[in-house]
Computed example of a mutant assay.
Amino acid sequence: MARAVGPVSLASARVALDDRVHSPVRFCLLAALNSVDSADYQTLKDALDVSYTLLSKHIALLEDAGYVRVHKEFSGRTPRTVLALTTSGRDAFRTHLTALDEIVAGLT
């Protein structure tokens, strides 16, 4: 398959970047969820080393975009929030990674 060269490729890759994915916290959150079927809120908070408030804000944005599914359950009396990527979330993450690869390749 022939690869586009020059600025056209860079421009199209730039346009393919997803602002909802691009934030470092959201990007890392999607990367973490992309590697598993699901993960609980506390595990993600600890892995990303962010505050509850910051993580909640980013999860809400990704949930509104349809990229993350949030499920609340109980373990005994303890509430537990479990997150998983949706098909749209996996596709968006993959598209974003492809665009980043094209940008890194640059003009070569």
Rank of each mutant, 00 (worst) to 15 (best):
A31T: 08
H22W: 03
K45C: 08
L29V: 10
K57E: 10
K45S: 09
D37L: 01
L55N: 05
G6I: 06
T53M: 08
S12F: 05
A39R: 07
S23H: 11
A11L: 13
T53G: 08
C28F: 09
S51E: 11
L55D: 10
D37F: 09
S9Y: 04
H22V: 00
Q42V: 10
S12M: 10
R14Y: 12
C28E: 14
K45D: 08
A32E: 12
D18C: 04
F27G: 00
D40P: 03
S56E: 07
T43K: 12
D46M: 06
V36I: 08
D49S: 15
S9W: 03
Y41E: 01
A31H: 13
Y52F: 09
H22M: 00
P24G: 13
D37W: 06
L10N: 06
Y41N: 05
R20L: 07
L33P: 09
L30G: 11
S12T: 08
G6F: 03
V36R: 15
A60Y: 08
D19R: 14
L61A: 15
S9K: 12
S38I: 02
D40Y: 02
S51Q: 09
R26I: 00
V25Q: 05
K57V: 08
S38V: 07
S51K: 12
L30N: 07
R14P: 00
S9I: 03
V36Q: 14
L17Y: 07
H22D: 10
G6P: 02
D18S: 06
A31Y: 10
F27N: 03
P24Y: 15
V25S: 04
Y41V: 00
N34G: 15
L30S: 12
D46R: 14
A60E: 08
S51N: 09
Q42T: 05
H58T: 07
L48F: 11
A13R: 04
Q42M: 10
L44T: 05
E63L: 04
C28L: 15
V36M: 15
P24A: 14
V25W: 02
L44P: 01
Y41A: 01
A39V: 02
I59L: 09
L10Y: 03
A47I: 06
L54G: 01
A31P: 01
H58V: 04
D40A: 09
L17E: 07
K45R: 15
S9H: 01
D40F: 06
D40W: 05
V21M: 04
D49N: 14
V15C: 00
G6R: 08
L61Y: 11
S51I: 12
Y41D: 02
D19W: 08
L48N: 13
P7A: 11
P24L: 15
L30F: 11
L30E: 11
S38A: 15
L17P: 00
D37I: 03
R14A: 09
T53V: 12
E63H: 14
G6Y: 05
S9M: 11
R26T: 00
A11P: 02
D46K: 08
A16Y: 12
V21G: 03
A39M: 13
S9V: 02
S56W: 07
S9F: 01
G6E: 06
S38F: 13
A31F: 09
C28T: 13
H58F: 10
E63S: 14
S38Y: 14
Y41S: 02
L61C: 05
V8H: 00
L48M: 14
I59D: 01
S35Q: 12
T43G: 05
